[in-house]
Write a protein that binds this DNA or RNA. Structure first.
Lengths: 355, 355
DNA sequence: CTGAAAGCGCTAACAG
DNA sequence: CTGTTAGCGCTTTCAG
């Protein structure tokens, strides 16, 4: 209803068919296209008379000029857009990652284009489409869990500006990962400190780099506590609630039963907890559950899940810094976010072992 | 490791700096660029000698030619990409929507670009950036809940190919919505059938079109059952778990307390349920909870949430059909997905009223 | 059947 | 300070 005359309140001129071009602005301002181009790009180093500049600015404003993306991209041979591609965008844990990526991208004048990885389509197709067709200048890619990174690496052109997150491909692509070893260790140490000795691991797929490293951290903590990480106390399942349920059922076959479980990711932990209720197992009375990765869902289970919060925001920022560097030169790097360390968030799903 | 020689197994050539162009292919095939263009676009109607065609095809293959997106977009004045913009991509309930959008878009040869709406940035900026700069040909947009649709409508150029989902802007943009009235009604009817009479509504914001209509459905069902939809039995909160918790606390002040609650969305319902546990309220013993909207999280609470599944997949498909039509001609439409009706999924959070 | 040439909207030399 | 021009990679008349 407000109409204070400011341009922000006017309808957005957006129809592609009626797009106003530089030359229209030039015509109205009575100057050449190049003058308009210079002024509108805001290049500070250019010399234009204040008068011309003003005429151009008002003409552009009146006409609602917007630069054409394709034309700019064609001429510059770059788009100023970065792709962020993950297997499942609606996974709550990506919230932080996306924010990290977007914040850092914005800070460098890049836009981010989100993509989803179709499980049934080859991963390379996305890469080829985005990078190969020049839709993006660089790619932050989380490969689908269960895809062998070595195999993926084979398919990557080493010249492509790709940075893998949560996975590595030495010599093929840059990578940024969170401290999965530390995360697995922190989770397990928490249970150890609570007095648990029969600690199980509801781990991820063995093909997953992330899962392997969380497992390593778990085992480190076990050994450090003089405990034996027994193979039958480990499951290897995927990242869904349903697979968390399966993991619990398998683990509960054990005799004696474990009193504590480290779950390799939140979604599985949520399912595992629901299954515990279904089986009449009291958490944390009979069983303590701690999960690696945190998200809003973990706060809203019953009991709320104790979790190890991983630094996804930082990973997102670092990944963007890394691709942008890659676009400039050919340097390939492998980074691990160690600095903000994983942090244990104690909620209600873990308790001291009561004998 | 496999190396069967097929091109699919070769590294993806993707570096923008080393992109191979049409003229390089032409040179290698010993023909003109225009010939290559014709053949590679696969236009069936063109006449080229089988021999030339073959030479072109092999040259393109050997060089790993990929058409440049920007060049095509510039020349065609369209990108063949559609934008899907929602407030929060990681909201699990968008899974179905995205699939619907992607499936339908793919069927028409469009790619979809996902976007997130920053709460702190004006919604029009996204529209201007995507549509105005010609990054996309059309937009499927879910406005942030709480943004007044009328206000948004003012800001929309009626010529822009925008279709709103879960909201309307008559005369300004096309729209597609799910059957919110039916959803609210179905949820409430379920509680009525279980014998509840003191039924509360943990509704959404009054500015939300969707929330308004779910509320209307709720009230219809109440009146049809001879019940009085009392104002103090309704809350109006947003779409987060935390706001669901607040709603429950407010509702539990009532004396007598309601025995059933219809929650306007899943995330709030998950929070509300967690809060019920925290307050020592037995669900469904003391209180039945049913939510409009379903997602994997609803199956993994304790007890699992009874939910009304809305047709988000269909809405996604329809929305895409709608934008694409809008790109061609100027027809503006408002559609409601009535055909697959909302479906009640009974799980454990609702039970007959036990006196 | 095939090629030369113009032009999409923009930027960046290079002249005036 | 300002304008002219070439050309990014592609498609598309229009001649040959």
């Amino acid at each position: 209803m407000s109409a204070d005359g400011g341009p922000a309140d006017e309808p957005v001129r957006a129809s592609a068919t009626a797009a106003v071009t530089l030359s229209e602005v030039a015509a109205r301002a009575g100057v050449s296209v190049s003058a308009v181009s210079k002024v509108l790009r805001g290049n500070a180093a250019i010399r234009v008379s204040p008068d011309t500049r003003q005429r151009i600015l008002t003409a552009a404003e009146e006409l609602r000029y917007r630069p054409n993306f394709a034309a700019r991209a064609l001429q510059a041979a770059r788009t100023q857009v970065l792709g962020l591609v993950v297997p499942d965008l609606t996974n709550a844990l990506f919230t932080e990652l996306m924010h990290g990526v977007e914040d850092e991208a914005a800070a460098h004048g890049y836009t981010v284009l989100l993509g989803r990885l179709d499980t049934d389509r080859p991963q390379t197709e996305v890469i080829a489409r985005l990078l190969g067709e020049g839709r993006v200048d660089g790619l932050v890619l989380q490969a689908t869990d269960g895809v062998d990174p070595a195999a993926l690496a084979q398919l990557l052109d080493p010249r492509a500006a790709v940075v893998l997150i949560n996975s590595v491909a030495p010599g093929r692509a840059s990578s940024v990962t969170v401290d999965d070893v530390g995360g697995g260790r922190t989770a397990t140490e928490h249970l150890v400190e609570l007095g648990h000795t029969r600690i199980a691991l509801a781990g991820g797929l063995p093909t997953s780099y992330t899962a392997q490293r969380r497992r390593r951290g778990h085992q480190q903590a076990m050994r450090a506590a003089g405990l034996d990480p027994r193979a039958d106390h480990e499951t290897a399942l995927g990242y869904t609630a349903d697979q968390g349920r399966q993991a619990l059922r398998a683990l509960m076959q054990l005799d004696p039963r474990p009193t504590g479980i480290v779950v390799a990711n939140v979604n599985a932990a949520v399912g595992l907890l629901a299954e515990a209720h279904a089986l009449g197992i009291d958490v944390p009375g009979d069983l303590s559950v701690v999960t690696v990765l945190d998200s809003w869902t973990a706060e809203n289970t019953w009991p709320p899940l104790t979790a190890v919060r991983m630094q996804f925001y930082a990973m997102g920022r670092t990944a963007v810094t890394s691709v942008i560097r890659r676009i400039g030169d050919a340097t390939m790097t492998d980074e691990v976010i160690l600095d903000p360390a994983p942090v244990l968030v104690v909620r209600g799903s873990t308790a001291s072992l009561s004998p």
